[in-house]
Simulated assay, not measured.
Amino acid sequence: MFKILQFFISLILLYSPIILSSQNNSTQEIDIKGRIIEADTKESIPFAHIFFEGTLNGTTSDINGYFVLKLTDVSNKPLIVSSVGYKTKTLTNYSSNSEITISLEKNIYMLADIEILADNLPTKRKLRMFKAYFLGTSNNAAETEIMNPEVLNFFYDKSTNTLNASATEPIMINNSALGYRIIYYLENFKASEDNVEYTGNYYFEELPVDNADKREKNLIRRFQTYKGSRLHLIRSIWNNSLKQDGFTLFYTNYKKIKLNEVITDLPTGEKIICLSPGAIIYYGDMNQSTTYFGDMNQSTTYYGDARPSEKSYLMQQEDCTKIDKDGYYDPKTVKWSGQMSEKRVADLLPYEYLPYKK
């Protein structure tokens, strides 16, 4: 176990973002400046998206491929660079003290591959299925809309009852319940009744609101969505506040987890948690029902109170997972099931989110 931790820590130190320590100094603003070019021709790529994963911090390159992105307190997340027709690039090793050049490789689609993906299921039905799997079925999802469904391509495999999807452009998602727009670059999507798998990169923008009442409703819905979420859990683990926040964690053999036995502090200011093979997570009052069917529209029903217990499972895909104070973790190192896995794109919150206080 000690050798595994040593190896993991060495990787963290090697690939952690190189950002000036003064970025957290509120009196001095620091930017990342650079240019996006094509790998083969070295020509500029205009209107590429550059953003920190899962945050409100993103921008686009200008007509000549240049961009400026401000560093914030959550800028220790992976830096994502995406553009239509190119392979997405993830940067974890970059500097803010010099202009950087980022080259993207073309994403070549073979026509023969596309022609194979044909089925007899109506497109409208496949779109409804995609929304249910991708956005979810929560009350938030009911108020969330995909603004450009024409960029989506579907193939339904009748032999396995599996829906496959891809997108030719970033999916623009307006979540009126939470007051966010999500720009989502979909990489892979495959879903059936028994299993839903999708990967991609995304960032947020605040949706404009025209009155104070609407903003107040957004803030309350964000708070309700946050309570018991994956974001809430990771922050609770970081702060060692599971009990205060309503979480109880067990190993898969139902032995209670003690965080001081599974958490290691890193020299980078981050932490790693080693729960292999996984954990059982309860949120709320364990003496009540294990499923919560509350109405999210009842904004004060569980405002700060324990609610009936929700049960989820966390299975580590690697020995350890890096986490940070904002609730970030590498999604490729963890697989969720149970209540938390039912929370999909319509229930996402940016890493800048802070709990609502009325």
Results as ranks from 00 to 15, higher is better:
1 M>P: 08
3 K>V: 09
11 L>C: 10
14 L>R: 12
17 P>A: 03
23 Q>G: 00
25 N>I: 09
26 S>R: 13
30 I>H: 13
33 K>R: 15
35 R>Q: 15
36 I>G: 00
36 I>L: 07
42 K>H: 12
43 E>G: 03
45 I>T: 01
46 P>M: 09
51 F>S: 10
51 F>G: 01
54 G>F: 05
55 T>V: 10
55 T>C: 08
56 L>P: 02
77 K>M: 12
79 L>R: 11
84 V>M: 06
85 G>T: 13
91 L>P: 00
97 N>H: 12
101 T>D: 05
101 T>H: 03
106 K>T: 01
111 L>Y: 08
113 D>V: 01
122 P>C: 07
123 T>N: 13
124 K>N: 13
127 L>A: 05
128 R>H: 08
130 F>M: 04
132 A>L: 11
134 F>H: 04
135 L>E: 10
135 L>F: 10
137 T>H: 02
145 E>F: 15
146 I>K: 02
148 N>F: 11
150 E>K: 10
151 V>N: 05
151 V>P: 07
161 N>F: 12
161 N>E: 15
165 A>D: 09
167 A>P: 05
167 A>T: 07
167 A>K: 05
169 E>D: 14
169 E>S: 14
175 N>I: 09
178 L>F: 06
179 G>F: 08
193 E>M: 10
194 D>L: 11
196 V>F: 02
197 E>S: 12
205 E>I: 02
205 E>W: 01
207 L>P: 06
208 P>I: 07
212 A>C: 00
214 K>L: 14
226 Y>F: 15
234 I>Q: 07
234 I>Y: 08
241 S>D: 14
243 K>Y: 10
246 G>R: 00
247 F>Q: 05
247 F>M: 07
248 T>M: 08
248 T>W: 01
249 L>G: 06
250 F>Y: 15
256 K>V: 07
257 I>M: 08
257 I>D: 09
262 V>A: 06
265 D>R: 10
269 G>T: 08
279 A>G: 06
288 Q>G: 01
289 S>H: 06
291 T>K: 14
293 F>I: 12
305 D>N: 10
306 A>C: 01
308 P>Y: 01
309 S>I: 01
315 M>N: 11
315 M>K: 12
316 Q>S: 13
321 T>W: 03
328 Y>T: 05
332 K>Y: 12
338 G>F: 00
338 G>I: 00
340 M>S: 01
344 R>D: 03
346 A>P: 09
354 L>Q: 15
356 Y>S: 02
